[in-house]
Every structure is written in structure tokens, then in C-alpha cells.
Design a protein around this nucleic acid. Structure first.
Lengths: 215, 215
DNA sequence: CTTCCTCTGTGACAAGAGTCACTGTACTCC
DNA sequence: GGAGTACAGTGACTCTTGTCACAGAGGAAG
């Protein structure tokens, strides 16, 4: 286990009170995860609360036929709400979390996380706030699926992607299609249309976003 | 304000500890809501946590064009997770809660609910458990929208409806269509098919469910 | 009984999205 | 430079869902 850089951690979680930070530094473990690796899947027993220090995680849903769709991204400073509330789920569909880039996480043993809820007000607030944020993001995703056509969903997806990792979207059409639970051809066509409006420029294996609001 | 029937309330929320129950009885207000009335809409400032004592609430999403879809039902013993985490939301789409039947709710002022989180372990657990349940239900809804065709979504919807209010589904095709964000004609056709398999029987203004598993 | 209104059933058509087949294009590795 | 491979573009077709138009059917109220 590497030595925790206190300053670094504090910077990501400034809302946590001092004594809690001390415990956190002492009791949690730092883990590095390579881009592309799976961080979590429901059904598996989750024994830790996950705090994200650096990098980018995507949380998505996968059904029994291998279809998937993106729920939301987690950025540094976020906690994985699901890791806090993972009950024994034995349904067919799963929630998965995967590292988009290399990622550093802090693992807090569940029993501690549980205990801190009563002990530290700031931890408690942090946990509740995490639930809220995830709930809201999930609702946005739900909205876009329920009310919007694929063209608007694609826009929503691109906007979100730009927000977490910049205007260079380094994804193939196939990858985008997967995350929207659609098919490559359809995404290709829609992207082409977007390019024609001038909103984006297409390249091999990536695309540049110029302005998604003009559409 | 009516007098709270302690026994009744205890029965719905047996997991709450005694001193908390006492405070709850003293500090919260009972409110009766008529079938069809709106309980809540986001954006509006929510000043209370809502506990459901009797009746049935539906929680649904509505977008700016009046489209809607059902998120989940709340039954007696449930709390409205949203009333606990309503931040100032000023987006276009809204979460709405409406009474399906006549409903009795207990209103807990937000500042108390907040305080109890630290004070009573059982309250804290109850709140966390509520979040979890709603999150899970929302995920199921999301799944059915993202992965399933309308036929399967209709089945899922009917099953859920049967679970909360029995095998007589007293809804017009139009109402069902609304809750699935679809159109009457399509729902009519799908229901007809279901009737042909023997899973349900159609009537004017209601339908009987026999067995939804056989489909 | 008659009128009126809401709910339901149905056929025809349109639009969106998925699938298939095939072509072209850029990059990588010998 | 040439072969192989993953990615991207495109047309044709199908299926599902939504829309429009209209016809019955059942209830309610007079």
C-alpha cells in the first residue's frame, strides 16, 4: 500500500471534518485501477465504500443479454453511492463500474463507513449528498431515455462527456452506440448530421466538439 | 389537526425506536389527501418529510410538454425519499406525486427530520433504507424503458400495479398509455393481444388480471 | 327511448431505429 | 510497399411505435 498523500486527499474532500480526515487517512486503503478495468459489479459482495481521488469512472447498467447503457460518470471528489447501498441483489441486470482512465480510489471498510455516519456529521452529510447527486443524475438519464429521441440523447451524451473529459471525445462510433444501447450505423448517421451543422468534426477514433448548443 | 392514532402509526413503522416514536407523535402533523390530488412537485419548496400511513401514492416524472411516466408507487410504511432530498431544482422536468386513492400522510418538519438523523439511529437507518429502495425501484423502471419493448413494459407495469392494488386494474387504456408515455391505440392493441393469450380480461374502464407469467 | 359523451377497436400510413450487406479508408505490422 | 484489420459511410429493408380517421359500444341523464 502506498502512502496516502494527505494534502491531495484533503483537496478532493474539503467538506470532511478534521478528525474524520485523520481516521480516513489511517483506516482506508489506496488502490490504483487501470483504465478499462472493472471496479465493481452488483451481485458481488461490496465490502468497501469507494471514494474517487483521481481519474474517471463510468457507472452503467448491463442486462442479461449484454446490452448496456451509461448511467453517469464519477469524478474525483465523488463517492460511489452504490457501493454504499449495495444490498444482495440477485437480479439479472447488473450495475457495473469501470475505469475510463487510470483511477485512484480510496477504499473505506463498510463497517467504518457505517459507524462514521453516526460519529461524524460531515460524513453523514457527504453520504446523503452523494445519494442525492446520483439520484438526480440518474433521473436525467432516465428523462433522456424516456422522453427524447436518439438524436437528443446523443447530444445529451456528448455534452456530459465533454463536461467530464473535454472537447476531444476519444471514442469510436461503436463505443458510443454501446453506451447508448444503440447500433453503430445509427450513431454514425446521427454524428454525420451533427457534423453537417458544424457542431462537431469527425475523425477516426475520436471527434471534436465545437458547440453543441447551436443544434 | 386530528389526533394521531399511535397504534396505527406504530404498526406502519415498527422499525422506529420508542423515543423517536414519541417525538414523531408529538411533532408531526397528520394530513389527509383526496384521491387525485397532487401531493408534491419538485421545484416547489418542500418543507416536510412525508411518511405514508394509508392509501397509495404514485410518483412520476413530467416533462415540459406534459409527457409523463410512472417512476414507482409508494405504499403505507414508505417514506417519500424525494421529500427528503428535494433541493432547489429549477429544471424543466419535474417529479410529481399524486394520490391514487385517498391518502393519509404524516408530515415531519424538515429541520426535525434532519436533526433526528444524528439523534436516532433507527431514523437514520430508515432514511437510508428509503433511499435504497427508491433507487432500486427507479433502476427497475429505467431497465424496462431502456432494454424492453413496449409489450414487456406493459407487462411490468401491470405486474407492479397488481402488486400494489390487486387484480382489478381500474384504469382506462388512456390512463395506462399516459403512465407509460405511449398512446392509447398502441396500448389497446397490446392489451388485446394479452387478452387473447388469456392473461387478462378487458372491460370498460377496468381490466382483470389472471396470470401475467404465462405470456 | 334518445342524446351525448367517453371509452374501445381497427385499418392505413408515417417516422424512427435496428439490421444486413457491402464499400471505402486509415492505420499497423511485417 | 503490401496485407490485414478495425473503423466509418451508405443504401435498402424490416419492425416497432406513434398518428390519423373513423366506427362501434356502453353508460349516464334527461
Amino acid at each position: 500500500m502506498e502512502i496516502l498523500d494527505k494534502e491531495e486527499i484533503l483537496k478532493q474532500f474539503p467538506q470532511l471534518e478534521q478528525p474524520l480526515m485523520d481516521e480516513l487517512l489511517k483506516q482506508s486503503t489506496l488502490k490504483t485501477i487501470e483504465a478499462g478495468d472493472e471496479v465493481m459489479r452488483t451481485g458481488q459482495y461490496i465490502k468497501s465504500t469507494i471514494l474517487l481521488l483521481s481519474g474517471l469512472l463510468k457507472v452503467y447498467r448491463e442486462d442479461d443479454e449484454g446490452n448496456e447503457f451509461l448511467m453517469y460518470y464519477l469524478e474525483p471528489g465523488n463517492a460511489c453511492a452504490l457501493s454504499m447501498m449495495c444490498t444482495a441483489r440477485n437480479e439479472k441486470s447488473q450495475i457495473m463500474a469501470k475505469a475510463v482512465t487510470d483511477v485512484e480510489v480510496l477504499l473505506v471498510p463498510s463497517h467504518l463507513s457505517e459507524m462514521w455516519l453516526g460519529k461524524y456529521k460531515s460524513w453523514h452529510n457527504f453520504v446523503i449528498a452523494s445519494y442525492r447527486q446520483r439520484f438526480e443524475e440518474l433521473l436525467q438519464t432516465l428523462d433522456s431515455i424516456a422522453f427524447k429521441g436518439l438524436d437528443e440523447r446523443l447530444l445529451f451524451y456528448l455534452k456530459r462527456h465533454v463536461k467530464v473529459s473535454g472537447k476531444e471525445v476519444r471514442l469510436s462510433h461503436q463505443q458510443i452506440a454501446d453506451e447508448l444501447n444503440s447500433s453503430r450505423e445509427v450513431i454514425s448517421r446521427l454524428l454525420k448530421k451533427l457534423e453537417q451543422t458544424g457542431a462537431i468534426t469527425l475523425h477516426r477514433n475520436y471527434l471534436e466538439v465545437h458547440d453543441l448548443e447551436i443544434v
